[in-house]
Write a protein that binds this DNA or RNA. Structure first.
Length: 282
DNA sequence: CTGGGGACGGGGCCC
DNA sequence: CGGGCCCCGTCCCCA
């Protein structure tokens, strides 16, 4: 599966208003009622806001903020889900643990596997009290999410793995570096001095600058053409290849690029079926 | 409608 | 952990 197919596009096919996004309050601790932010992602999956008094931490050198997971990929879609929705901090659950340990125990309830955790079932104990009777059924209390999740039989990854979400969109990453890289696509820190166009990464800016300078460092070995972009050279090389990678399942016509095949399909040759994808071995 | 070029996006990998 | 680069892709435009 091509990686880019996994990338969500902006529905409007337009870039978000980064100025507005940047100007928003990034890291404040939410204090509104948890129920006001409750939202449903799945018939059996509900995302809950962070306990409003629990977590706050400086972002440090991050480009922008992120928050704890709205959902975790290792959590079965039909299973119970415990998550946060607020742009709080880049803290994984195991990092939350010591923070929570200084706060209050969490309660849980015994319930059917399909039953969703609710705010009332996951609520902090009475402030300042050494409560050990957090569980509504077994009277156990849990000072950490880890302990609570073990009691709830949540997946190990959910208990242990770092997990970061972009505050600008729905994307989630298991590494902070990956998230910071992604956030650059929102903040666009690399600006062309010649035209002011902004890019997410320096090498994208370099490629753009070639459009100003006319530099074309990527030459075709089969003809005299040269390109400023390696990907464009690769696409060009397909024009020299006798083997077209993309074949229409209906008429067996072959194309050098999948975009051409897509156009062919959209034109009405075989609209009801995806065509063969003949991956070359070169 | 097709073929191809130009510009660019984004995740992963490597150092 | 960050930067550079690679790979795979899309979108737009034009002949």
């Amino acid at each position: 599966m091509p990686r880019s197919f996994l990338v969500k596009k902006h529905l409007s096919n337009k870039k978000p208003d980064y100025a507005v996004l940047q100007d928003s309050k990034k890291y404040e601790v939410m204090t509104e009622s948890p129920s006001s932010k409750l939202r449903t992602l799945h018939p059996h999956q509900t995302v809950f806001p962070a306990p409003h008094h629990v977590i706050s931490a400086p972002i440090g050198s991050l480009d922008s903020g992120m928050y704890l997971p709205p959902q975790h990929p290792s959590v079965p879609m039909d299973g119970p889900v415990l998550a946060f929705t607020y742009p709080v901090t880049p803290i994984a659950l195991r990092d939350v643990q010591p923070v929570l340990s200084t706060l209050e125990p969490f309660q849980h309830s015994h319930s059917d596997p399909d039953e969703k955790l609710t705010v009332s079932q996951l609520q902090p104990g009475t402030s300042g009290q050494e409560r050990r009777d957090g569980c509504l059924d077994c009277q156990k209390s849990y000072f950490t999410f880890s302990s609570l999740s073990k009691q709830r039989n949540l997946p190990c990854e959910w208990q242990c793995q770092k997990y970061f979400s972009c505050k600008y969109c729905d994307k989630e990453y298991v590494s902070l570096g990956a998230l910071k890289m992604h956030i650059r696509t929102h903040t666009l820190p690399c600006v062309c001095k010649l035209c002011g166009k902004a890019f997410s990464r320096p090498w994208l800016l370099q490629g753009h600058i070639r459009t100003h300078t006319g530099e074309k460092p990527f030459s075709c070995p089969h003809c005299t053409r040269a390109f400023a972009d390696r990907s464009n050279l690769r696409a060009h090389l397909q024009t020299h290849s006798e083997i077209k990678k993309y074949q229409c399942r209906s008429c067996l016509k072959t194309f050098s690029r999948i975009s051409l095949l897509s156009k062919h399909e959209e034109a009405g040759c075989c609209p009801m079926s995806r065509s063969l994808y003949c991956q070359s071995q070169d």
